[in-house]
Design a protein around this nucleic acid. Structure first.
Length: 290
DNA sequence: CAGGCGTGGGT
DNA sequence: TACCCAAGCCT
């Protein structure tokens, strides 16, 4: 096995010099702020999260503040961040935190993991970043860095493997686990990127197994590419945008005009309703859930 | 476990 | 210009 400090020390040093000043990383950020940021950052770039997160923290500074609102308001103020079911789940987190945890974001991994929208990554991230606990924080950035640095692969497997988890756990320092986690993530986000890694700027290029092997091209199974144009997802997005922008009941005719295919439109609308993102009212109109 | 789930910026 | 893909989760 490799010597963990060969990777840790240069990455931690690099982080000291290159960490972005993100509001949810500041010392005055609350656990709630960290939790909100983590949900918003799922599959979503930092630059798009920043303004929405800031507005949410002003509007709903505590879980109790959000829990007191309707879920529809959470969806409305999600704006165009994407994957709006996350807004519903965050609202569900707030309600569970108030109902079951005295209004305080839990600090325990297992408890966090039981909240809506919080999976393995987010539970580990919140426990680490909000409470300084020691967990393997395996997001797409960390997985890519470790695939390269340790396994000499350009990309990690499609699904997280036990081997990856073993590698990540072996690298956790006995002290400062949370700082280590955010440092590796930051390296993946800023330097060891998916498309065009900036190896020239990398603090571990001399120790990276993939770099040392001559950066061999990825030869594993094809990675899933996503289509969007013409899909139900796009249709749902169009419909929900109308509901978000209108305050109150939206006549069906106002939804009909944003998507031509009526079969697909009906299916998408039914999907939004069954997901809890929309409500049908009497008189053939719709709105965000109250 | 593979597929569904938004959106917009970088290359 | 067309992809590629960005701090995943749920079913």
């Amino acid at each position: 096995m490799y010597e963990p400090n060969r990777l840790r020390e240069p990455i931690l040093d690099w982080y000291s010099e290159n960490a972005r000043d993100l509001p949810w990383r500041r010392t005055d950020a609350t656990p709630w702020g960290v939790l909100v940021s983590e949900i918003m950052l799922q599959q979503t770039p930092v630059a798009r999260v920043l303004p929405i997160w800031t507005m949410w923290m002003v509007r709903w500074p505590t879980p109790a503040d959000l829990a007191a609102e309707s879920s529809g308001e959470a969806v409305r103020h999600w704006g165009r961040l994407g994957y709006p079911r996350r807004a519903l789940r965050l609202h569900g987190c707030a309600q569970a935190i108030v109902a079951d945890h005295g209004g305080e974001v839990p600090s325990d991994y297992t408890t966090l993991r039981s909240l809506p929208g919080i999976g393995d990554y987010t539970a580990a991230a919140v426990a680490s970043f909000a409470y300084g606990k020691s967990h393997a924080v395996l997001d797409t950035n960390v997985r890519r860095v470790l695939a390269r640095a340790v396994s000499a692969e350009e990309f990690p497997p499609n699904a997280t493997t036990s081997a990856e988890r073993r590698i990540a756990e072996a690298l956790i320092p006995p002290v400062g686990a949370a700082r280590w986690a955010v440092a590796v993530m930051e390296l993946g986000a800023l330097v060891c990127t998916a498309r065009a890694p900036r190896c020239a700027d990398c603090p571990i290029k001399a120790r990276c197994a993939w770099h040392l092997a001559g950066k061999p091209a990825y030869d594993g199974p094809a990675r899933k590419g996503q289509t969007y144009e013409g899909t139900d997802r796009q249709c749902r997005g169009r419909l929900l945008a109308v509901l978000r922008q209108a305050h109150g009941a939206v006549p069906k005719a106002a939804l009909d005009v944003v998507w031509h295919d009526s079969v697909q439109r009906e299916r998408a609308l039914d999907g939004l309703i069954s997901d809890g993102l929309a409500e049908a009212l009497d008189g053939d109109s719709y709105r965000l859930p109250v």
